[in-house]
Simulated assay, not measured.
Amino acid sequence: MPLLSWHRQNWDIVHPFIDLSKTNEVFNLKSLQHYVAGVTDPSIEDKEYLFDVLVNMPRREIYVASHAKENFVLSKIHKDIASQLVSLAQNDECSNQDIVQELSSTIGDLISNLKSLASDQNGMLSPDCITSRNLTASKEKFLINLAVAEGLMKM
Rank of each mutant, 00 (worst) to 15 (best):
S21R: 13
K141A: 10
K22G: 01
A147V: 00
P2L: 10
R8W: 09
E102V: 09
L143C: 04
A89E: 09
S116W: 06
R59L: 15
A37E: 02
L103W: 13
S105Q: 11
A147R: 02
F142P: 07
N71C: 08
D52T: 05
D120T: 08
L85M: 13
V39R: 00
F142S: 04
R59F: 06
K79D: 13
S83V: 07
Q33I: 12
V53K: 01
M1K: 09
V36H: 02
V53Y: 02
V14E: 12
E140N: 05
I81Y: 07
A147E: 02
L135K: 03
E150F: 05
L152C: 04
L29M: 08
K154G: 07
L29R: 00
N113V: 00
L32C: 10
Q97E: 15
N113Y: 09
R60L: 14
D98Q: 00
C129I: 06
K79Y: 09
P42Y: 07
L103R: 15
L114R: 03
T131I: 11
Q90W: 08
S83T: 04
N122R: 14
S5L: 14
S21F: 04
Y35R: 03
K47S: 08
H15R: 11
G38A: 01
V148L: 05
P16F: 04
L110S: 14
C94E: 11
V148A: 06
I18V: 15
T131S: 09
G38W: 03
L32A: 10
P2F: 07
Q101N: 15
R59A: 14
